[in-house]
Write a protein that binds this DNA or RNA. Structure first.
Lengths: 221, 221
DNA sequence: GTGTGTGAAGGGTTTCACAGCA
DNA sequence: TGCTGTGAAACCCTTCACACAC
């Protein structure tokens, strides 16, 4: 892949200065913007345009990209489709990731049907719950499995990313079961922070925090 | 309220150095941790303990609080219940905020029933959709309203916080309708960035970004 | 001329370390 | 003694500004 000629390899990148969390998140945004440009058949894009689409500065866009290689043509800009693929590669979207969900409540069920996931290569192939009344029921193409067998199920389904979608009281326990089963990347929807060893990556989606930030804004302006 | 004696008033705070987004988000986390301590009848807490619960440093906790006043007793720590109330006050949780949802799909429906919202004083009293097949149907205690009447509905229900839970193609348009109706705080669940005038605050919940950050981590380690 | 890539400057946030008070 | 509150230092991230390539 031509891409690899201009981009540092994984090994090199590991030796390099650590890439910041915010850069990664913006990359994900650029990716989405580029997707939309490609759909509209817009072949070329400048850092200025990309910045405007995401409400940031063009210098930020160029700096973010510069950590991973040089992707543009001076005086011209970037090829939308090529840049999209290159960012996709950086983000690890080149492969399909197998995703397993812990908790078949509102959130768990919604995520099984979340079209954006499959579109980006996240394949939900397992959903588990502890409630006997829920185990065995069908959610789209999946049958809810018994979370007492987490270890076995995770291995059988080759799950690489775990999602915690259980009530906050059980969140740590659910995460522990996933980690125990070898999962090293967890997306947590419960409104508590989860403890994990440093080799396990946890990201949280916490609606309460977002809406309280809005509350703060409204209360203080 | 005794609290106001030691804490800068809104007016004072406005004149002060702007509080960072991350500080606000951490405040929201401390609030949740304190809630749990209060439930366990733990009366006193140190910045160290609070930090440990949230996986950060104690200096960070003390610094965050110091922007708003002095809440602790040297050599002792903080009173859990008092600090909880004080942070709640800062975050504007002293009042009930009326919330309106745009979009009665999976996410919209899940949010109507989200217990954590009501618990923190966010009261969902309106849900709207554009689809005639959905308008008029019941979701818990709410009847789905016609989004063509957004302006009127928002005013009738005194909505202060809007939630965008429509497909990404319609997200900007949905936000525009809310802003047009006078909404100044929007929580966006669509995976696109929304443009708004500077006096309107937008927070986004973007699951795709979080899971792609996990993908990056797995692909690069 | 146009827009990228990037060192250097600037700004902001976190961590340090300790004075001060219970 | 123990833990808070906080200036100062360290660190990190963003913005600037311009050489350079197309």
């Amino acid at each position: 892949m031509q891409f690899h000629l201009q981009t540092p390899s994984l090994g090199e990148r590991e030796r390099m200065k650590k890439i910041s969390e915010s850069t990664i998140r913006r990359l994900s945004r650029y990716y989405r913007s580029l997707e939309s440009l490609v759909e509209q058949n817009i072949e070329t894009v400048s850092s200025d345009k990309l910045a405007e689409m995401d409400g940031i500065t063009s210098a930020q866009v160029r700096k973010d990209l510069s950590f991973f290689g040089t992707f543009g043509k001076r005086g011209l800009g970037y090829n939308s489709n090529t840049l999209k693929k290159q960012i996709g590669e950086i983000l690890g979207l080149g492969k399909t990731w197998k995703v397993g969900i812990m908790g078949a409540g509102n959130i768990g069920r919604a995520l099984v049907n979340y079209a954006e996931f499959r579109k980006q290569g996240f394949d939900v192939t397992l959903i588990m719950d502890a409630n006997p009344a829920v185990i065995g029921t069908q959610i789209a193409h999946l049958t809810v499995q018994d979370s007492r067998h987490t270890g076995k199920l995770i291995k059988e389904h080759d799950i690489e990313i775990g999602i915690v979608a259980v009530p906050k009281e059980n969140a740590q326990q659910a995460a522990d079961a996933l980690i125990e089963a070898g999962i090293r990347a967890i997306l947590n929807f419960a409104p508590v922070s989860i403890k994990a060893p440093p080799n396990v990556q946890i990201k949280s989606e916490n609606t309460t925090i977002e809406i309280e930030a809005l509350s703060y804004f409204l209360a203080n302006s």
